[in-house]
Design a protein around this nucleic acid. Structure first.
Lengths: 201, 201
DNA sequence: TTACAAACCAAGCGCTTGCTTGGTAGCTTT
DNA sequence: AAAGCTACCAAGCAAGCGCTTGGTTTGTAA
């Protein structure tokens, strides 16, 4: 009767490590990193709390790995979808759709952890994650600049700031968007386009 | 040499209760509700940890009061600024500016707590806070609907969803916007207008 | 000057936390 | 069959947690 946890990524649940990370993503989002205990996590994967530390040295290490996995997975997926897009409008749409998918799809719980549990990382881990995210962010900025050059984004718009607004807008959807209703992620992505592109789009 | 805490609201720091709430807003944002201990809080206001409970029954009660105070303060301020706005464009701008002020101004830390420490409230408190927020949210929806009727927002835009996008976009600014630079809050509000209003604005 | 309440301290209780330890079951390799 | 490795359990430790208790100081008012 409990909430079913989404898998972090396909096939990962075959190994103990993968099962722990998937359960951790679920628990860390639901209760927050601090409130979720190692004992909770151990129960979720069916082992004793001490056994967790056979697979990860510390609790923070589990958090760090959840974040690394979800960045890698979603960066790769977005790269793929960008290649399939034909024109610039299509590329912007691909970015929007891809990020909404990340936030609300199977990696949604892990994405929420990535965004909102930042404070629980130690500084060195924060630096590491930041560098991984920069690759992802650069893809956004490149497309936005192309769109601006093509006249799809107004001259006086700062694409740096625009990307930050969009980060917030799309990330927040995790708190209200419920998949399975009348509005699917593609439709939501179309709606979000009007935040970025000028005039009728 | 430590970070100076913004006051939650003017004059509140005169009473012990106010000093505790202001310090709590600062600590809860910096470390998260769970990680911030009552001992941390006591040290910040210069008393023993046990003395905190002379003023508040539980730690959660402190969190709840931080949230209530910040909602009341910002709802009232936004009401005021809405009255001063002349036309519809001005009203939308007033909303944007007001919320950016809430998030990045003197109530910024408390706003971050309101947004991101939701999980740490017990269900009954969540319900209470939700009802307070609904008044605030209704003001947004009313103005958006007026703007749509006036042709400033496109016909096919769902104002409900638009508000949610904007909530995320503006709320996220807490993580990147630093006051005191070249870009002040008014200028940022102007920039954010293009997310909402169609064409040149 | 006395009475009283609000504000606070010093000490610590009961519990939970992340993590450690020493050992065992079972599979794989030689 | 011996050795070695991965995956785990059972038990518990030291530290830190929210919160309580009993008593003391301090400001205000009669």
């Amino acid at each position: 009767m409990g909430t079913k946890a989404n898998s972090l990524l396909a096939g990962m649940e075959d190994t103990p490590r993968g099962r722990i990370l998937a359960a951790a993503a679920h628990l860390f989002q639901k209760k927050g990193f601090e409130r979720a205990t190692v004992r909770d996590l151990a129960q979720a994967v069916g082992m004793q709390s001490g056994s967790i530390f056979h697979h990860f040295k510390t609790k923070e290490e589990i958090l760090r790995n959840v974040m690394i996995e979800v960045i890698r997975f979603n960066t790769e997926r977005m790269e793929q979808e960008l290649k399939n897009a034909k024109d610039i409008r299509g590329k912007v749409l691909a970015l929007m759709k891809s990020e909404l998918q990340s936030v609300n799809g199977e990696t949604g719980e892990a994405m929420a952890v990535l965004i909102y549990e930042w404070r629980s990382l130690k500084p060195e881990s924060q630096q590491e994650i930041l560098e991984l995210r920069e690759v992802y962010e650069q893809m956004w900025l490149n497309v936005f600049d192309d769109a601006k050059e093509a006249g799809l984004i107004e001259e006086d718009v700062d694409t740096f700031i625009l990307r930050r607004f969009i980060t917030g807008a799309l990330g927040w959807s995790n708190f209200w968007y419920k998949p399975g209703g009348a509005l699917d992620i593609s439709a939501l992505a179309e709606k979000s386009l009007s935040l970025v592109l000028k005039g009728k789009c």
